[in-house]
Design a protein around this nucleic acid. Structure first.
Lengths: 173, 173
DNA sequence: TCCCGATATTTTAGGTTTCAAATATCGGAG
DNA sequence: CTCCGATATTTGAAACCTAAAATATCGGGA
């Protein structure tokens, strides 16, 4: 949301700078950030105004909704791509709100399972419906084919980024 | 009782009513988030390891770098798409690090101009070069044409989202 | 069995971020 | 000139988030 938000004023200024060669990547990255910041801020706002909750809590509940038996904190943090300590705090707050419950893992005394309470599940279904409608509005500029196209490009970019990372291409020479 | 729970009755009615059409948008949104989270986490890591700084600070300096005379906190917060209070704290830390300096606005005693110090400018140029190289690695899966394509789609999506928002399509009916 | 590296979670410290309220100033209407 | 709504910034409270260290447990090998 906060990354290098693009300056709307000089969107087209430096399309022809050859000094570095990385210009297109930067412009694409800025545009991607600026769009996702726009969408994200609207979703945050609506979650707050309509449901008095936050995006991270919604995200966590969305992960839990797919697993009837719940999952461990560790699995949650991997799926949400955030740190363990982060999940600890989020779960704490959701438990306090009665939307989520913890129980010890059956065979591993280090781990805990977390799952939605019936209240949490009911509330999440409300929120998920609204969330889908918001996205429909925010993505209404793209037709089905364009969305598939963009998804393909993102998939390709992500795969290749992962591969480059595993080859250590981002590490200090 | 914080979270909304006022209409448990039509939970399924509404969910069912809108259950169908929004699948592609959701998948696209999740894929976009997952890619940008990947890129973002790598940039954060490299900024920390190579320059002992953070992404928000880099972001703020990037805005300042384009304005020789500096800009006001208010303008900064608009361009970065974050709140005023946020910028206040960031500038505070950057001033403490000697990378940024404030001075009163000439004609408006409410406002302050902020700009890079020579040290800040020098450091930013280093960081921007590295940042460009990181992006080149992370986007290496897309060729020029694909990047332009994705940029066009993002531009279209953003424009239409803005228009939908200005028509109030996201507000409560 | 004991030990040890790996895994799951929490804790700690520091930053980032938002919202809302407070403060100060501006600029125009009357 | 005075008042008043708008604008620029700061402050305070709460949440979010990360990295790194600490704690507890697991599981396998000697």
């Amino acid at each position: 949301m906060t990354l290098l938000a693009q300056n709307p004023l000089d969107a087209e200024t430096k399309a022809h700078e050859h000094e570095d060669g990385h210009q297109t990547q930067l412009r694409l990255w800025l545009r991607l950030l600026s769009f996702s910041a726009l969408v994200e801020s609207q979703i945050r706002r609506r979650l707050r105004e309509d449901f008095r909750t936050t995006l991270p809590r919604f995200d966590l509940m969305a992960q839990l909704e797919r697993a009837d038996d719940g999952m461990t904190l560790n699995e949650l943090s991997k799926r949400m791509m955030v740190t363990n300590g982060n999940v600890t705090g989020l779960v704490e707050r959701l438990v306090a709100e009665g939307l989520v419950e913890r129980r010890p893992a059956p065979k591993d005394r280090r781990a805990q399972f977390v799952r939605l309470t019936p209240l949490g599940r009911r509330l999440f279904q409300h929120m998920a419906g609204a969330h889908g409608r918001w996205l429909a509005v925010l993505f209404s500029g793209l037709d089905e084919k364009e969305m598939e196209e963009m998804m393909a490009l993102l998939g390709k970019a992500k795969l290749s980024a992962r591969e480059a990372l595993s080859r250590g291409e981002l590490e200090i020479p």
